[in-house]
């Protein structure tokens, strides 16, 4: 039996040197909607949660997923959260989510208005599964998903690093890779 997943989230974290002030992402995301910058995704709106500490920040709302400048847990980054998809083999679902998150992070890094003060770490990233029916936050889920996650990462060029459970037991299932010895560039992940 293969492991199936859906509603995967991937977060690339901002480097410490990055300016994570949220105001400047609002015009960027509006422009992405206007210019349909993510070709196979219907971009809808920008949601502003600057007032919620350590929250989803600024969200670029799309039909299939949300792209947020998220600071849940206190660390800011680009969080891609798939909302509506069919369950599919975990490896395929994870690789696709990483690719889409990397595309958005890379595009932000290359935004002329942001480029000088924005960069993402590639040695650390986090994945989560929102769907608690298919992937409850349990040891069984971890036992099943972690090897696949590691295998996907290795195929993408990551080497080394620790994978740990990223949340408490009531939170959605999440794993974090940190301290990878080698990691691919965002551009190569897109």
């Amino acid at each position: 039996m293969s492991t199936l997943l859906r509603q995967i989230g991937i977060k690339f974290f901002l480097t410490e040197e990055s300016d994570s002030s949220l105001d400047r992402f609002i015009p960027v995301f509006h422009e992405w909607i206007r210019e349909k910058r993510i070709s196979d995704t219907l971009l809808i709106d920008v949601a502003d949660y600057r007032h919620v500490p350590n929250g989803p920040g600024i969200i670029l709302v799309a039909n299939e997923a949300h792209y947020a400048i998220d600071s849940t847990g206190g660390a800011s980054g680009l969080l891609y959260s798939r909302l509506r998809d069919q369950a599919r083999p975990a490896k395929e679902a994870l690789a696709d989510a990483i690719k889409r998150a990397a595309f958005a992070a890379n595009a932000l890094q290359n935004e002329p208005r942001l480029a000088e003060s924005l960069s993402f770490r590639t040695d650390t990233l986090e994945m989560h599964v929102s769907d608690r029916l298919i992937a409850p936050n349990s040891p069984e889920t971890r036992a099943s998903v972690e090897p696949i996650f590691r295998s996907v990462l290795e195929e993408l060029g990551y080497q080394g690093g620790d994978i740990v459970l990223a949340q408490d037991s009531r939170s959605r299932f999440a794993l974090r890779l940190s301290g990878a010895r080698e990691s691919p560039s965002l551009a190569s992940l897109c």
Binding site: Y49, H51, V52, P53, N54, G55, P56, T72, G73, D168, R170, S171
Partner: peptide, 12 residues
């Protein structure tokens, strides 16, 4: 709650 909003993590 600012503007009536609370994040899922905060609510937990």
């Amino acid at each position: 709650l600012p503007l009536g909003d609370i994040s899922a993590e905060q609510a937990r």
